[in-house]
Design a protein around this nucleic acid. Sequence first.
DNA 1: CGGAAACATTTTAGGCTTAAAGCAATTTCG
DNA 2: CGAAATTGCTTTAAGCCTAAAATGTTTCCG
Lengths: 172, 172
Amino acid sequence: MPAVSDCINMLDSETKAVETPEDHAEELRLWLRLLTCTTLIEGEVRGRLRQRFDVTFPRFDLMAQLDKAPDGMTLSDVSKRMMVSNGNVTGLVERLVESGHLDRRTSETDRRVQVIRLTKLGRAEFRKMAAEHETWIADLFADLTPKDVRELMRLLAKTKASAQKSAGRRRA
Amino acid sequence: MPAVSDCINMLDSETKAVETPEDHAEELRLWLRLLTCTTLIEGEVRGRLRQRFDVTFPRFDLMAQLDKAPDGMTLSDVSKRMMVSNGNVTGLVERLVESGHLDRRTSETDRRVQVIRLTKLGRAEFRKMAAEHETWIADLFADLTPKDVRELMRLLAKTKASAQKSAGRRRA
DNA sequence: CGGAAACATTTTAGGCTTAAAGCAATTTCG
DNA sequence: CGAAATTGCTTTAAGCCTAAAATGTTTCCG
């Protein structure tokens, strides 16, 4: 049963002229819960990656992008996919080239562009990590039913679209 | 309609003796989508906090914790709540004390403990930021119906519980 | 053609973050 | 009591990350 104050707000919200400070406490709580879930899982994955393979989460993430692109990617592509800044990728790639996991070469047709690929070593190591990683994720989400997973996928797709639209509105 | 290979897997999964490498691609995709949503929203909020208030996301987060605790918190409490390392909090607090937003004092009863509070300035500035922040979040989640929000809350609560259980299993 | 705009990347300065080691204070328990 | 374990915090070393400025390259047009 809605409290009196809620009824008043509901009435106000239908009266366009009245500027009611609307209550968005629910969305705020949702955002905090989303952040908590991600932080929790990411921390767990990071810890396991470090313990088992002595690799960081960003390095694993970068290698995962490259594993899906056998012909390599440009740094810009990687930066967009990973949703991190360009400068960030520069350093990340530098260290992975240094350790022999990545191969970097300047594009033949455009000397601005750097194309990076996994080396044989990089691909082999990534595949090993990815296989184990998948079992960790399965375990972390173990209590969700297949239906829960589908429903979450759907709602997060909607969330992503909504957030992208809002971000677009701001940049416009 | 399930493909033939799926039927085989389903049969296998009910045959305890057979060690089928199970497929967890759905959970993997769910995790990536969760991460994408959080990264997207956090990036948007960080950008707005910087532009409007010249404040970082971690500082805002720390002040939010303290706003809920008028009597102050210990650094350990803050560290647990924010889900970051102890050392991280030390530096964060240092900078916010420096800028006059936080007050730090050693506990009377236990000289190991540091208690931090928002100063008058800190509280005033936080309240201003928080009000605007709430409208950003509302806008980012604008396309979700109240029912979507409730359902996401429920499913993320389940996700959080599942992940915590899994993390606990590992530490044991 | 040639200058302006756009593009891809790197550099810079500053801040965030972690894991691990270290230090001091407190608690536990033989 | 007093040694050992625990607790709360800081320090350290290394890496991650961003926004903004800088550099070199290519494209767009007038």
